[in-house]
Amino acid sequence: MAIVELRFTALPEHVRTARLVAAAVARRAGVAESVLDEVRLAVGEACLRAVGLTRQMGGEEPVTVTLDDGEGRFSIEVRDAVPQPVAAGVGGSNGSAADASGAAANGASLDVGESELGLAVILGLVDELDVKAGAEGGVIRMSWPSAKDKRGGTEL
């Protein structure tokens, strides 16, 4: 088991750094090459969401990304320090696509559209996903099989 932790000020330009670090650590952990694109995209979207929420609320706390290759799975945790009401329906994976296209097609404001799109991308990409929001902030946990996983590859 090995952990890499990254903390960054909630600025959009650091999201790219987080993506690069996550992809590098995932590759080292033995995550399949074909899945690295998904890891990169998903961690970017999770960080974008954390950065967006922090900036929206005028918060100054950094975003924390924890990358862990323990127990045959490569897991990523993205944590912000923005107190949030518990988000409804965020854990499910059905219906998100329709919501995103609906919002876009109906001409919802661009900001709302982007935030919904980000969540739709995460939900569409990641099978093992847990989104929590609470008084101490929000946490998005995602995981993928790594080289040591006996159960084989993930569905693409």
């Binding site: 995209l41 696509a97 329709a98 919501d99 995103a100 296209s101 609906g102 876009a104 097609a105 799109l117 739709a120 991308v121 939900l123 569409g124 990409l125």
Partner: peptide, 11 residues
Amino acid sequence: KIFRITGLTKV
């Protein structure tokens, strides 16, 4: 794939 999972292939 990103367009597909967000339903934007319909848009």
